[in-house]
Design a protein around this nucleic acid. Sequence first.
DNA 1: GCCGTTGACGAGACTGTATAGTCTCGCTAA
DNA 2: TTAGCGAGACTATACAGTCTCGTCAACGGC
Lengths: 198, 198
Amino acid sequence: MSNQAARRTRSLSADKRAAILAGAKRVFLRDGFAAGSVDAVAAEAGVGKQTVYRHFGSKDALVEALVVGMCEAIDWSAPPDASSDPRATLRRELNAFVLGLSTPGSVQLYRAIIGEAGRQPEFARLFFEAGPKVIRSRVASVLCGELPDSEASEAAAILVNLALGDAYLELVLGITPPDPKRFERQIDAALELVLPSR
Amino acid sequence: MSNQAARRTRSLSADKRAAILAGAKRVFLRDGFAAGSVDAVAAEAGVGKQTVYRHFGSKDALVEALVVGMCEAIDWSAPPDASSDPRATLRRELNAFVLGLSTPGSVQLYRAIIGEAGRQPEFARLFFEAGPKVIRSRVASVLCGELPDSEASEAAAILVNLALGDAYLELVLGITPPDPKRFERQIDAALELVLPSR
DNA sequence: GCCGTTGACGAGACTGTATAGTCTCGCTAA
DNA sequence: TTAGCGAGACTATACAGTCTCGTCAACGGC
């Protein structure tokens, strides 16, 4: 709408907002929500401190906007495929999920959210609903064709767990660098365990 | 030794040190390593601020002493049992592990360590070596009797993963309260999957 | 098409508060 | 007498949030 375009020039700039959020992402995911400062965000975004407050009102609101935005942007699902082989579908689905979660940004978000889970349970819930829960139900819906409905949900949980497996804990702890091949191996082993091929 | 008793009164008091660490545990695991203040620790420990510095020198050193101490104190293993049934042994072992990790203190430590993993990788490593790694190898050594050695290590990783399962992620995220029965169900399902009973 | 108004913006000074770390003092027990 | 200790004053720094000022680009009246 031209309304929006006209509004934007007279109103707060969407570009600035995006720049601030990008700066906030770098600063807060690097230093933590508590230790990261608004001054650092403003500097990182190439923006005046006042502009940050004009757009977001407070540090807490800024952090919340960042977390909400990142959670909403989560989309780790694989594009739909034509294949009717559920094993192949699951493999692609789990792979997309695991790769999405292995991104430096995702790992940092995961760390920050878990670090704050005791003080900011809403963030944790938001993340959970947008990420793990969605994948679980996607996997379960694929499994419904293969297993009795009563087992599909549990099997989905097991698959998702094993897909992340040890590799993800070690990745989050910073003990091992990301290793797509290792994830693939974990996914194959998980599929073999839950849906034995022969 | 009387030496120690004599030393203690003339030297820094071990009681004070312990009180400070106990206060630090409450404060830092509640507020985070960055946001928790030395003043709060001193107050919580019923101790003068100066005493904290006499004992630990700096906030960083205090945090490190706390983390190191808590990691060294980790012992989630079940007491050895006489039973020769490996399934029963594994069930007890996994149960002890999961219960130890579900303790409020353990969950808070886990959160804090993951939250800092990007900035304090040594803490993460320390925790990993003292906790998950130990359990993995304990489980693997039990499995060696049941499976070919080549599979035992991977199966152990799978068992440990499934024992924690969804319940632990949800616990750490603060989404579900601790539920020992749910963990038991997860452990039974995991054992059934890895070592089918019939 | 020109011009004055308007409001977003950058820069940075400023306030109040919190915190790390130091210093001093008076108490107490060996 | 000595040294650990509690209490709390003190310094220096950092940060959240506010305020001001000068600039600039868009809008509206002419």
